[in-house]
Amino acid sequence: MLVELVKVSKFPASPWLAQIQTPFGGTAVRWCGDQAAKPGKYHVEWTIDEDIAWGRNAKPAVGIGPGVRPGGHCVVLRGRLNLTVDGAAMLDFDGTQILLDLADPLPEGVADTWVELFIEREKIALYPYEL
């Protein structure tokens, strides 16, 4: 996914964070690239290092379409929830697939619906890469 890097910064007792913008919102998340990265456009891979538990950090979305925004101490990602034939869960985030680890099986009927994930910003990581 192509994102606009606004800045990379570090606060005491926290990892390096990137302030990013996308066409559908912006937020700050953990940055796993060059700490001296300059503002600009970067292709990134998203990872989530937190188990997804329906009703706790995953809920039906308010609205449709991809979205990203700050939500207090967490980041809110909105995307379409997909399940693979072998039971893995993926978040389709504007065409980018983010693998999800599930704490418990998902309830019936939530596959292929728009969901919002509420994840601590230090547990979402961006890995920049070059094409």
Score class of each variant (00 low, 15 high):
78 R>Q: 11
26 G>K: 02
91 L>D: 00
6 V>H: 04
63 G>A: 04
61 A>M: 05
88 A>S: 14
29 V>H: 03
120 E>M: 10
16 W>V: 07
127 Y>S: 11
89 A>D: 04
69 R>A: 13
79 G>S: 10
103 A>S: 13
94 D>S: 14
70 P>S: 12
19 Q>N: 12
79 G>W: 01
67 G>R: 01
23 P>C: 06
77 L>T: 00
9 S>M: 13
99 L>T: 12
95 G>A: 12
128 P>G: 09
120 E>G: 08
83 L>K: 06
70 P>A: 10
97 Q>K: 13
100 L>Y: 01
21 Q>N: 15
110 V>C: 09
36 A>C: 06
84 T>D: 12
4 E>K: 11
126 L>I: 10
130 E>A: 12
43 H>I: 03
7 K>R: 15
39 P>E: 09
10 K>N: 06
117 L>S: 02
128 P>Y: 06
28 A>M: 07
94 D>V: 04
117 L>H: 00
110 V>P: 00
126 L>F: 09
1 M>A: 09
59 K>D: 10
31 W>T: 01
107 P>D: 04
30 R>S: 05
103 A>V: 10
15 P>W: 07
75 V>Q: 01
128 P>F: 06
39 P>Q: 11
70 P>V: 02
3 V>S: 02
102 L>G: 03
33 G>L: 07
95 G>H: 11
117 L>F: 03
48 I>E: 00
53 A>T: 09
89 A>L: 08
60 P>W: 05
83 L>N: 02
53 A>M: 10
28 A>E: 13
114 W>K: 01
7 K>P: 03
44 V>H: 00
55 G>A: 08
76 V>D: 00
53 A>K: 13
61 A>V: 04
114 W>C: 01
126 L>A: 07
42 Y>K: 04
17 L>D: 02
66 P>W: 01
64 I>T: 15
115 V>E: 00
34 D>M: 05
51 D>Y: 11
72 G>Q: 09
37 A>F: 07
76 V>R: 01
40 G>T: 08
10 K>R: 15
34 D>I: 04
57 N>I: 05
43 H>P: 03
127 Y>H: 15
64 I>S: 15
28 A>W: 02
103 A>Y: 11
52 I>F: 03
42 Y>A: 00
10 K>W: 06
13 A>L: 14
98 I>P: 03
60 P>V: 06
130 E>G: 11
31 W>P: 01
40 G>E: 08
